[in-house]
């Protein structure tokens, strides 16, 4: 490849790194708060809610993310046509333009968020349950209310405990965004694959690989810094 070709290719890859970052950022933005809610629902003492939440987590963790992405993308027309679908859902979905770009992105994000929220929920639940009962009792005896206990005593300790597992999950997400190329959604992986026959070279895939590697490594360094910062107590 000539130098000119290389720089054109590099520019193209950079341009399509943006949609990848978009998937990554929006998935985190929604799945982390949703994961907290799901964790609390799973710990709910009213058993039916806990069971339903558990079924959701089982499905999300038990089936491939790729399958979930494809189902989310193509299921709307089938749902509208099915006999068992309630009318109010039909009327809601009929106005959706399934050819629009925002539809593709939103349904993809929907699948990413639901999938990652399930994993985050299990991490947060583990963190919450690992806090000794004595912490709740001590704070109760000092007169703290339920909210004060949660936000001042419990949550700060949970955050420290969930950082290692969460960072693992977040770094996995960097690489999982490439599954979007199968929908297809135009992000860095999709464009890299497309350029291979054009240039008759592996260079596009190599560049995509470097991008993922640098991104994941930066996050790794960042999270180890966060862990170190939280290391002021045991």
């Amino acid at each position: 490849m000539t130098g000119e070709q290389l720089s054109t290719l590099f520019g193209l890859m950079l341009e399509y790194a943006v949609p990848t970052l978009k998937i990554f950022a929006f998935t985190l933005l929604y799945s982390i708060p949703l994961g907290m809610v799901v964790a609390l629902l799973k710990m709910c003492r009213f058993k039916p809610i806990s069971w339903l939440t558990n079924i959701y987590i089982l499905i999300m963790r038990g089936t491939p993310l790729l399958l979930q992405l494809i189902v989310a993308q193509y299921s709307v027309p089938y749902i509208v046509r099915s006999d068992i679908c309630p009318d109010f859902i039909k009327s809601l979905l009929e106005n959706v333009d399934i050819r629009s770009e925002s539809y593709t992105f939103n349904m993809m994000l929907f699948a990413f968020v639901l999938n990652y929220a399930a994993y985050f929920a299990e991490i947060f639940r583990g963190g919450l349950e690992s806090i000794p009962k004595g912490q709740y009792e001590a704070s109760r005896c000092l007169g703290f209310g339920k909210f004060q206990t949660f936000f001042r005593i419990i949550l700060p300790q949970v955050i420290k405990r969930v950082v290692p597992a969460s960072s693992n999950e977040i770094i996995t997400l960097v690489k999982d965004t490439s599954l979007a190329s199968a929908i297809p959604y135009m992000e860095i992986m999709y464009i890299a694959k497309k350029q291979v026959p054009l240039y008759a070279s592996l260079m596009p895939l190599f560049m995509a690989g470097v991008f993922y590697f640098v991104f994941a490594t930066v996050l790794t360094v960042l999270f180890s810094a966060v862990e170190k910062k939280l290391d002021y107590y045991r």
Binding site: G134, A138, I153, P156, Y233
Partner: peptide
Amino acid sequence: VFQNFNLFPH
């Protein structure tokens, strides 16, 4: 006052 203190570690 508890047997195992239950201080807030953070």
